[in-house]
């Protein structure tokens, strides 16, 4: 049975696109079929983070408007053949997305893929509400910082009222993914800790992704962090998050980049 996930946050720059790419690639690496869909019409970036920016021909709007068929617009990943990307349009306006059009595309994607992961734009307007509209599950990406937590709370309210599930009296399954976490600063009381964030938002935790330079390196290279450096701390965090989405019960850890003496001696490979 296929599952539609929205990766959302309200606030911009918290790591939605990075998380979409990393979790999508991690799920696809287990052999299941995954489509990652960019809903950020006008400001597409998932193609860039996935390293597919030069292969975009058609986009989500073209498919919504019937200009292109879905298989024509899907871009198959060169590294993992079970992973596909449906890019957003860079030139159009988000008003080109219609509710009926999006419903039709999501239905078609459901029939083809085990997982459909929708990368929401920031904000709470049309693009964001359409990205969450048909979701079964939501991943709310939150930084341990006041404005991000507040915006997450707002988005949770929208997930409980504006989605198709909510209107049918059902519930969208919701998870918090904490990104850019600095365990040392949280321990010193300089940053909201995991418990603070979860107490305030009252939702289960999907994973903790530590602040890491590996994330920027991966996006520089156009490769999801889970593929670019599978042994890195953020890659391990995202892989665990993907396993939890599949229903596995893993102990919650904060992966760390701190290397032991031997690792330092033998360089990155030893990690």
């Amino acid at each position: 049975m296929s599952k539609v996930i929205v990766v959302t946050s309200g606030k911009g720059g918290v790591g939605k696109t990075t998380s979409t790419a990393a979790i999508g690639a991690a799920l696809a690496a287990t052999g299941q079929t995954v489509a990652v869909v960019d809903f950020d019409v006008g400001l597409r970036n998932l193609d860039l983070v996935m390293g597919a920016e030069r292969r975009v021909v058609y986009d989500l709007i073209n498919v919504v408007q019937g200009v292109a068929k879905l298989p024509q617009a899907l871009i198959r990943d060169k590294r993992i053949d079970t992973l596909s990307l449906l890019p957003a349009s860079q030139t159009r306006d988000k008003d080109a997305l219609t509710e009926e059009g999006v419903a039709r595309v999501i239905k078609e994607l459901r029939a083809k893929f085990d997982w459909v992961i929708c990368d929401s734009p920031a904000g709470i307007e049309r693009g964001a509400t359409l990205a969450m509209r048909y979701a079964d599950t939501a991943i709310i990406v939150t930084n341990p910082e006041v404005s991000s937590v507040r915006d997450s709370d707002r988005i949770i309210g929208l997930l409980d009222s504006k989605t198709e599930k909510a209107e049918k009296g059902e519930r969208v399954e919701k998870h918090i993914l904490i990104t850019r976490y600095d365990a040392a600063r949280a321990a010193r009381g300089e940053m909201l800790n995991i418990k603070d964030v979860l107490d305030i938002l009252s939702l289960p935790l999907l994973g903790i992704v530590p602040e890491s330079e590996d994330v920027l390196r991966a996006s520089n290279l156009g490769s999801p962090v889970t593929l670019n450096d599978p042994a890195s701390a953020p890659a391990r965090a995202y892989r665990d998050a993907a396993s939890r989405l599949k229903g596995q019960d893993l102990p919650m850890t904060i992966p760390s980049d701190r290397k032991g003496f031997l690792d330092k001696l033998f360089g990155r490979r030893a990690a």
């Binding site: 910082e145 006041v146 949280a186 010193r188 009381g189 300089e190 940053m191 909201l192 800790n193 603070d196 107490d199 305030i200």
Partner: peptide, 8 residues
């Protein structure tokens, strides 16, 4: 030290 409790 401890701006986090204020944030919370």
């Amino acid at each position: 030290r401890g701006s986090a409790p204020v944030a919370r």
